[in-house]
Structure formats: C-alpha cells, structure tokens
Design a protein around this nucleic acid. Structure first.
Lengths: 247, 247
DNA sequence: TTGTGAAAATTTGCATGCAATCCAGGAGGT
DNA sequence: ACCTCCTGGATTGCATGCAAATTTTCACAA
C-alpha cells in the first residue's frame, strides 16, 4: 500500500480538522498508520508536516498531539490575516494591478453578484460557489501585491482552522441563510477593488481591515447561533462548512 | 551515529544559510546524509523541515533544491515583519503590558544603552550582545500582544534569511562601524516602548512600521557598501553577521 | 489503603533495504 | 544529421526492523 506523502498529509489534515482525534490525546503512530493504510514512516512524515503547520504539537519521545484552538485564538488569527491582507491591498494599489489581474478581479465580482441576484444562493451549490469566489478574490488581491513572503505568511495563518477565506459559516438560523452578511461582504469587495484600481493604498488597506474585522464578528456570532440551535438537525458539512483552507 | 532530528535540522539549516550548497542545485540525499553523519532518512526529514520553512523547494522524485532569495524579496519580508510587529505593538498597547514584561523591556533598553555609551560597541562582543538585546526587545513586544497566531506568523517570516531581528549588518566601511544607525534604532525602541506603556496603540504601530522601514533601508545600503568594499578583508562572520533567526 | 520501585509492554526514533522513478548515453530507424 | 526509443546507472520514495525511551502494570511494604 504505497501512497504519496502529500495525499497522506492531506488525508490526515482533513481527519484532524474533522475532529477524528480528541484534542490533547496523543496520535499513536501505528494507529494513524493503519487508519491511513500506510507505513509508520509515512504517517510520521505526515504528522511532522502538520506539526509545522501548527495543527499538531510534538514532544520528543512522546509523539504528536492535536492542538486545541480557542475561539479567541481564531479571532486573533483572523486579525492577523486582516492586517496582512491590508498590506497586500496597499502594495497592490501602490505597485499597480496588472491588466490581467484587474480583469480577473472584476470577473470574480461579476460572478459573485450573479449568484446573489439569481436566487442561486438558496441552494447549497450556489453557496459553495460563493465561497470559492470569495477565496479567489482574496487570493487575487494577495497575488496583486507581488510580494512572495507575504503570500507565504498569509498561507501560514490561513492554515489554522477557520481562519482562512474559505472558512465561511452560513448562519442557517437566519431566514435568509446569511445572505445579508454575504451581500455586505460583496459590497466591501467592490469598494476594495475600486480603491486598489484607483491607487488609493491607504483607503484599500482600511477597507480590507474593516472587512476582516466584520467577518470575524459575523463568524463568532454565527457560531454561537448555530450552537444554540443545535436541536434543529442540519445536514452536516452543508450548513456549517468547515473546509481546511489548503488546496 | 544516531543524532537528534532537531540538531540535524539546525546543522543543515546553518549549512544552507552559510552557502555550502549552490542555489538551484539539488541536495543529494546520500551526500547530505554523509556530510551530516546520519542516515538518509534523517537527512530527508531535516530537508523536509527546511522545505516547510521555505529554505528549500521540493519537486517530486527530483529531490530538494536550495531556494534563492533576492534582495527585493528580503525587503518584502522585512516589510511584512514590520506590519506584523506593528499589529503586535498596537495590541500590546490596547491590551496593556503586564508589569513583568514592562519591566523586562525597560531593562533590555537599559542594557542596550549601556553598551552604546560604554564604548563597548567597538568590540565584537558588544555588537553581538546588542544583536541579542535587539532580538529580545522585538520578541518581548510580540509576546506582549498575547496573540499566538501572530507569534507564529512572525516566526514564519523571520525564517527567511536576513529578515529577522537577529540579522543585523554592521557596516564596517563606516568609521563608527554603524554606531549611528544603532543609536537611531535604540531611539526608536525607546519611543515605541513609551507609546505602548501609554496605551497609544496607533502611535506605537506607526513608530514600529517606520522602524522596520528604516532598518530595511539601512540593511540594503550596508549590503551594497560591504559588497563594494569587498577588497578590504574583513573577518568573516564578524563584520557581516548572518545568523539564522531561530534558536 | 496508599506509596514506592522495578520490570514488562508499548511506543517512539532512526538505520537499513527494496521497489519505483528519473537522467545520461547510445543504438537504430527515418 | 536528427529524432525516437531503449537500456544502464543513479536517485528518490517508502516499508520494515531494531534499539532507546517512555508508560503501564503489579508486587510489596508502610
């Protein structure tokens, strides 16, 4: 049963993020290896990778344990991401977007507007598509800065659970399934792009900072609402989309 | 010859940063392993670790190569670090420094002032000690924010060569060995601490941002001066201190 | 019952070995 | 001469095995 390291790492990452392992308990090499269907060596390599991503901790001779993330920690991570994206927006504005990127950003926003206006938002597919567009927008802004270490740093913080732009919580306890929040986010996006295209670096940075802050508030609120309404059975993985933020 | 992974990783990291391997050329497993005096497995593990730190790249079935960093890339990394430290300073100011940390920061600055005033700066030991104090100051500010993801993110960017607070280039082509630059940096530190202690978050952030920017300018200038004056033989590792930024 | 200590069992850490993959150089065909 | 394909050597990727370290178990005494 030989398998590729990246695949195994991804499988283990999803498994950890899905909560298959109790936080604080050790991940035994043999157990992990047999579940993944690979050798202990490969399992160890994958755990080492996740340790460097911050999902696991490692104590010498005592193995790996899953790290525990608090809500406050996630909020902190989002604030860090907001600050980094603010830098990205500012640099993108200062250095100027390439025509290609500018066009792509416009298309992303067009598609997103389409989804919201065509009522496609009530269906799961529409919401998942919106998540993709959101992530694409944020990624494109970062790309526009042309700052490799910045890309790397943002990738780093986005690896902590729920901190990345793909981690969106749709509040199904609301009548509109969170459409109002999404509309607000979209408005932010429009203004951010406008600021960057007009070379208004400081304005772009301020807007994206506020965008991140609001998104963090919404996320926390939605979490609490969903917890409270746990009685209502919701299809898992649909209402609460908890995807890892890595491809 | 069994050795510990962390030690091996550190040894390889220093070796790579010292330029023992030509950028772009592949690191053969057997060669690396034999130089480090360990098995191929351990060498591979260490290379994997350095890959996730960004020092090496990995192509499937084609091994690891050392990444090449341009001066611009380093400048970008320092700008990212500046932005993150600005967030740290702001949060430290907003959340308030603990009495312990505040005291420690004061002592660090006292020690640093001592070194500069006592002429100890002309000796290598004094300059090395100043580097340590500088790094300690920056680390303490970050600690003061009480933001774990922020600590992690800063640690991440500081791993790229020359980007961290320990990477200081003393310009030996100047008569004062760069003392004027160090004095300026120290003044920045004093004001930054003052701002944080007085809960002036925005001021602290602005100061540290400017501090990072100036440090980046100095670093680039010093590099160019040193390159130009390469004819003058300088003791390697002393004038140009190129330590990795990890403990 | 509770505390101490040591040995057994589990588990990690690393080295070695084998199969899969990739690169260099040349034979053969066009 | 040039392109294609193949073969030999080298290199990576993963599985297995063995020694060191840790946790658990249990006997025995206070």
């Amino acid at each position: 049963m030989s398998a590729n390291l990246d695949q195994v790492t991804q499988a283990l990452r999803e498994s950890v993020l899905a909560g298959d392992y109790e936080p604080g308990t050790a991940l035994r090499e043999v157990a992990v290896a047999s579940v993944l269907g690979v050798s202990r060596t490969l399992a160890r390599l994958a755990m080492g990778a996740l340790e460097r991503e911050g999902l696991l901790t490692h104590a010498p001779n005592r193995g790996f344990r899953v790290r525990l993330f608090t809500v406050d920690e996630i909020a902190d991570a989002i604030e860090v991401r907001g600050e980094l994206e603010a830098l990205a927006a500012r640099q993108a504005a200062e250095r100027g977007l390439s025509g290609k990127l500018s066009k792509r950003l416009g298309e992303i926003l067009d598609d997103a507007r389409d989804i919201m206006e065509r009522e496609a938002f009530n269906e799961i597919e529409g919401r998942i598509r919106w998540i993709e567009l959101n992530a694409a927008f944020h990624a494109a802004i970062v790309e526009g800065a042309g700052n490799t270490p910045l890309v790397s740093a943002i990738g780093h913080v986005c690896r902590i659970p729920m901190a990345g732009p793909k981690a969106i919580v749709f509040n199904t306890t609301l009548a509109d399934h969170g459409l109002a929040q999404v509309r607000a986010a979209h408005e932010d996006h429009e203004q951010i792009l406008d600021a960057i295209q007009n070379r208004q670096g400081t304005r772009a940075a301020a807007l994206i900072r506020e965008h991140a802050y609001r998104s963090s508030r919404h996320k926390r609120q939605n979490f609490e609402d969903m917890e409270r309404a746990r009685s209502t059975p919701v299809p898992p993985g649909l209402a609460l989309i908890r995807r890892p933020d890595v491809a």
